[in-house]
Computed example of a mutant assay.
Amino acid sequence: MRALSVSEPWGIDQIAVIEAPDPAPGPGEVLVRMRAVSLNYRDLLMVQGMYARGPAMGGPITPFSDGCGVVEAVGEGVTRVTVGDRVATLFFQRWISGPPTLAGLVSALGFPIPGAGSELQTFSEQGVSKVPAFLSDQQVATLPCAALTAWRGLFEDARLQPGDTVVLQGTGGVSIFGLQFAHAAGFRTVVTSSSDDKLARAKALGADHLVNYRTTPAWSGPVREATGGVGADFIMEVGGGGTIQESMKAVRIGGHIAIIGVVAGAGEAFNPASLIGNSAKLQGLSVGSRDMFEAMCRAIELHRIGPVVDKVYPFTQAKAAFAAMAGGEHFGKIVLEF
């Protein structure tokens, strides 16, 4: 079989397509023939040698946590799936239910467990899940990280009601899923972006308010205006230190800010005293459990939510796909096909 591999000195140019022996499933494992994988910002950090839990501790690695494939063989004792089932890989292979634990959080695909970036791969039967039949393979491959992160932030961690205001920063995978889920749930949505073209596409997906943060860097002002001065109930914070100050200005008293990314860099130092002033909740968020994933899939099927796949490449062109992600060219998700 062919597989993607990356190792020191790290970087997009170090991604290679290698020949490797076909794996075989052991007891409790399934062998999956992969059809598609999707890119996450974590994958970019990993191949660049900037992901603390991965390359810094050695290599080479098989990247990608998010994939769609078909079960080709099962090991002894497998009961969750059968040969021929189409499944998604789960980001955390051992986080089945309940709150996050250390054991669950160290079971992420890509590192420390070899990822889905190969034509054939074995996974624990507990680490795959059946998926809605109406979705394409490309769409299924976008669900395990970006979709589930948005889902958990909106419906597991926050206590939102229809009519509440949700701010989605940018138009990457998590934020676009957040927009789609929020729209289906009856939330008022505010989308920020540096591109008017991308904002227009967000409007077509149901965004209620649009803010170009390049022309309006103090985007908390329009958020306050849209909410009658009250502020947003929920903010999907993907920028990190580079945007957290504006998020604190935009959130309402007692509101919820979900910290899921650091794409805007370090930014200014954050003063935690500002949290005291408005009783806001600032919560780190790292994907979710299998139970959360399956609840999300039921909602996707009920509302016929179609994940937005913006760019598709053959898996042998992974370098081009990562370059597109690094350049911020995408709206929604980037996918590799096998």
Rank of each mutant, 00 (worst) to 15 (best):
M1R: 09
R2Y: 00
S5W: 04
W10A: 01
G11F: 07
Q14R: 10
V17R: 04
A20K: 14
A20P: 02
D22T: 15
E29Y: 11
R35D: 04
A36V: 03
M46T: 15
Y51K: 07
G54N: 07
P60V: 13
P60R: 14
P63G: 02
S65C: 08
V71W: 11
E72G: 10
V78F: 04
T79G: 06
V83K: 14
F91Y: 03
F91T: 06
R94N: 13
G98K: 05
L102E: 13
L105A: 02
A108Y: 08
A108S: 12
G110E: 04
P114M: 01
A116F: 05
L120W: 04
Q126M: 15
K130S: 02
L135Q: 03
S136C: 02
T142Y: 10
C145Q: 10
A146L: 13
A147H: 14
T149W: 03
W151N: 06
W151K: 10
R152C: 01
L154Y: 01
L154H: 04
E156P: 00
E156W: 00
R159F: 15
Q161M: 09
Q161P: 02
G163C: 01
T165V: 14
V166D: 03
F177Y: 15
L179K: 11
F181H: 07
A184S: 12
D196N: 13
L205C: 05
A207G: 01
D208P: 06
P222L: 06
G228Q: 05
G231K: 09
A232C: 04
M236R: 13
Q245V: 13
S247Q: 00
I253F: 13
A258C: 06
G267L: 11
N271A: 07
S274H: 14
S274K: 08
I276D: 03
N278M: 09
S279K: 15
L282D: 08
G284W: 08
L285T: 11
L285A: 08
E294S: 02
R298Q: 02
I300P: 12
I305Q: 12
V308G: 10
F315M: 13
A318F: 09
K319P: 09
K319V: 11
A324Q: 09
G332D: 08
F338I: 09
